[in-house]
Design a binder for these strands. Structure first.
Lengths: 200, 200
DNA sequence: GATTTTCTTGACCGGACGGTCATCTACAGA
DNA sequence: TCTGTAGATGACCGTCCGGTCAAGAAAATC
């Protein structure tokens, strides 16, 4: 790892927990630079703007999830509907461990950023939309596999997948308002009761 | 209406759409004062801090809803489960009309603020929590009435109510990420499929 | 009419914001 | 050895931030 990529990744590493635990507007570039041991001019050598930084942070979170819990949850070896349980459990354990370390439930950074910036920055909104879109596809594929396997009565897999994603985000939102990840544990399993029937 | 309450309410009136359409951090007191035609010193005569202002704004939104759509939706004359449909419809039409006027879907201000500030301000978090708690009670009472009437198979009304509220918030979040209220229309009705069974 | 309280005015505070820039250093390739 | 480039430095830009304050105007109370 040369000096250049090291500086860049130190910036991202400093920014990640801050954007996650506070908000986009509330985290300043100066603070990130100080924490990363980087001068401001150097920051702007790697990131044209604050928005570009948060995009890189979004990518990092997305990769982390895709290669971690999501890869585990959507393991083809698992029965389809169990994968959904697995993912909800992963969200629960993750939020729980964050709270143990940090003292607070931080929620989903994609949801957090969506509600904060999506009326003000269409480029960020598009970025976040793409993340949700990929998540939805995972759910959809899983639902279709379950239907094909006969584990699940036929339904509108596209809309049901979207409903499940919405539900997961909503549960995390409510849990954050209570600062209590246990809500995810209690409400999570009901995700499988959601159904949108196929249009007649 | 004397001058005092008029100034106060003009401040709130100027703040409401701004906090709703942007974010807490992104709206400054100076801007609100200019829009309301009020001097800064006068602002701080009525509101000890920015936080107090946003609390008043939250109260106004809550009252507006409680006396408007919510009162209509939870009309005892309606069959219980239809009340839930009514509320989801109201959310849809509201967001749709906002988009027509404003060009954007603004979402639920309670959800927006929750994700933005609840890790940074426990007093605001408590305020928002109380709003959600009241909303949950409405759902819960309705579910219990439906069960009593035999329209709905017995379930855990407390957790199901919370699940429904979470789902509604999640759907609005996803719709906001797409800047498309139609998603509420498509996903909303599935709220009634949510069930948390009573613990054995 | 005198006094007290409520409200308004507008200048002012220190500090943080995102972002720029000229200058310097280090290193790579020719 | 020379040159071009990537990276680092730190001062600097104008602007906005939430909040304060002393003074004055207006209105209510007696």
């Amino acid at each position: 790892m040369n000096a250049a990529t090291d500086t860049r990744s130190r910036i991202i590493a400093a920014a990640k927990p801050r954007f996650h635990s506070r908000s986009y507007a509330n985290v300043g570039i100066q603070e990130i630079c100080e924490s990363a041991g980087v001068q401001k001019g150097s920051f702007y050598h790697f990131f044209p703007s604050k928005r570009d930084l948060v995009m890189a942070v979004i990518d990092e979170f997305a990769d982390e999830w895709a290669n971690g819990f999501v890869a585990e949850a959507f393991d083809p070896a698992l029965p389809p509907m169990e994968r959904i349980d697995y993912l909800v459990d992963a969200a629960y354990f993750w939020q729980k461990s964050i709270k143990q370390v940090h003292g607070r439930m931080l929620g989903c950074i994609f949801g957090n950023l969506t509600l904060e910036v999506s009326t003000q920055d269409d480029i960020l909104r598009a970025k976040l939309l793409a993340i949700f879109s990929r998540a939805k596809s995972r759910f959809k594929d899983t639902l279709e596999e379950a239907v094909a396997a006969g584990t699940l009565a036929p339904l509108d897999s596209d809309l049901t997948a979207e409903a499940m994603l919405a539900y997961l985000e909503g549960v995390i939102l409510l849990a954050k308002s209570q600062n209590d990840p246990e809500l995810i544990y209690r409400l999570g399993p009901a995700i499988k009761t959601l159904r949108v029937e196929t249009a007649a």
